[in-house]
C-alpha cells in the first residue's frame, strides 16, 4: 500500500512507532549523524547520508555482557537505507541459531530512501531491491512524503495516522538500475589465491591492517570473548567486537599465527565475504554500502578491487548497464 503523508504526519508516524517500540534512528548528536535511540523528534535525520556505524551497533553492541542481552524485547530500526535492510536480513540469518541477536519478528524495519553517492554500489549485488521492510519512506516535493507498507505490521501502524490518501497499486521509485544477472566469477577467482598471489600482495602492501573496514561493515560480525577481572574482585565475560585483522584473532597456542602476514588477513577478508559467506548463507557478505571505502585510512577501495577481479562487476560499476 502507498500512503501520502505530510511532514506533520511523518512526525506522528515516528511518534507512534516510538510509543510502541524502543526506536533507533539516525540523529544529529554532538555534530555527528549517528544511529541512536530516539528521545526527541527534533534531531531526526531520516534521509541522511549513511551513518559511520550501521545497525549492528544496536543489535550487537560492543562489549555486551555475555548472557545479559534481552532476546525478547521489540525494537524499531527507522531510517535504514535499502542496502542496510538487505544487510540486516543476512546479519540475522548469521545469528539465527544463537540467542545473541534479536529475531526478525522482534524488529520493525522502517527504511528510507537514500541518495546514492560515489562510494556505494548496492546494485552490483541486488541490494538496491526494495524489499524486506515493514514501511518504506520516500521524500516527495515540498513537505510531502510517501509511506509504502510491505507487511501487516506496517499497515497497522499507518492505520493509526490520518493520511491524505492511499493507493493499492503503487511501487516506490527504484534505487539505481535493477538487473537480475548476478552470475559473477568472483567466488571462483577469489577462491584461487595462488593464481592471484601478486594481486593480493599488492593490495596487502597498501593496507595498514588496522581493521577500520571491519568495524564499520554491516556484515562483519566477528567477536571475541573478553574475560574481565574487575577491581572489586568480580569478573565478567564480555562479547567484544573483533576483526580478522587483529593478531589475537588468528593466533592460537604458542604464538602460532594462522594468518601471520597482512596479505593472509586481507585475503581472508575477501575470502569470507565472497567465498565462505556465499557458501554458508547464500549471499555475499557485502551489500555495497561503501562504508569501508569511507573508513579506510589507506584509501583502499573495495569497488576498484572487485572491478579488477571481475569484468562484469567492472562494467556494472563503471558503465551502468549499458554495455552488458
Amino acid at each position: 500500500m502507498k500512503y501520502d503523508i505530510n511532514k506533520h504526519q511523518l512526525g506522528k508516524l515516528v511518534g507512534t512507532i516510538t510509543g510502541k517500540y524502543q526506536t533507533f534512528a539516525p540523529q544529529e548528536i554532538g555534530g555527528k549523524v549517528v544511529l541512536a535511540e530516539v528521545k526527541t523528534l527534533s534531531n531526526l535525520r531520516l534521509f541522511s547520508r549513511p551513518t559511520v556505524l550501521p545497525f549492528k551497533k544496536i543489535l550487537f553492541p560492543d562489549r555486551v555482557e555475555f548472557g545479559k542481552a534481552d532476546g525478547t524485547k521489540s525494537i524499531a530500526l527507522v531510517g535504514l537505507h535499502v542496502c542496510d535492510v538487505h544487510a540486516l536480513h543476512i546479519f540475522l540469518r548469521q545469528f539465527v541459531d544463537s540467542k545473541l541477536v534479536l529475531r526478525r519478528d522482534n524488529i520493525l524495519i522502517v527504511a528510507s530512501e537514500c541518495e546514492p553517492d560515489i562510494n556505494c554500489f548496492c546494485e552490483v549485488f541486488g541490494a538496491n531491491r526494495l524489499d524486506g521492510f515493514d514501511i518504506y519512506l520516500q521524500k516527495e516535493e515540498g513537505d510531502k512524503y510517501s509511506a509504502y507498507t510491505n507487511s501487516q505490521t506496517g499497515e497497522d501502524i499507518l492505520d493509526e495516522i490520518d493520511i491524505i490518501s492511499a493507493e493499492e497499486q503503487s511501487n516506490p521509485r527504484p534505487i539505481k538500475h535493477d538487473d537480475d544477472d548476478f552470475e559473477y566469477s568472483l567466488e571462483d577467482t577469489i577462491s584461487r589465491r595462488a593464481d592471484f598471489e601478486d594481486f593480493w600482495q599488492r593490495i596487502a602492501n597498501n593496507c595498514f591492517g588496522c581493521g577500520a573496514c571491519t568495524a564499520v561493515c554491516p556484515l562483519c560480525f566477528c567477536f571475541r570473548q573478553e574475560y574481565k577481572n574487575n577491581i572489586d574482585g568480580s569478573s565478567k565475560i564480555c562479547l567484544k567486537w573483533d576483526s580478522c585483522f587483529a593478531k589475537g584473532f588468528s593466533e592460537i597456542q604458542n604464538r602460532n599465527d594462522l594468518r601471520p602476514e597482512n596479505v593472509d588477513r586481507i585475503y581472508n577478508w575477501y575470502h569470507h565475504k565472497f567465498v565462505r559467506g556465499k557458501r554458508e548463507l547464500g549471499r555475499f557478505l557485502c551489500v555495497g554500502c561503501g562504508r569501508c571505502i569511507v573508513a579506510c585510512p589507506a584509501n583502499l577501495n573495495i569497488k576498484n578491487i572487485l572491478s579488477a577481479l571481475d569484468e562484469k562487476i567492472e562494467r556494472r560499476i563503471n558503465g551502468g548497464n549499458k554495455n552488458s
Binding site: V52, L53, K57, G209, C210, A212, A215, V216, F245, P297
Partner: peptide
Amino acid sequence: DLAVCFECRQNENQC
C-alpha cells in the same frame, strides 16, 4: 591488538 582506527570508527569520528 588493533590500531586506534578501529576504536575511532567505533566512536564514529570524522577521520
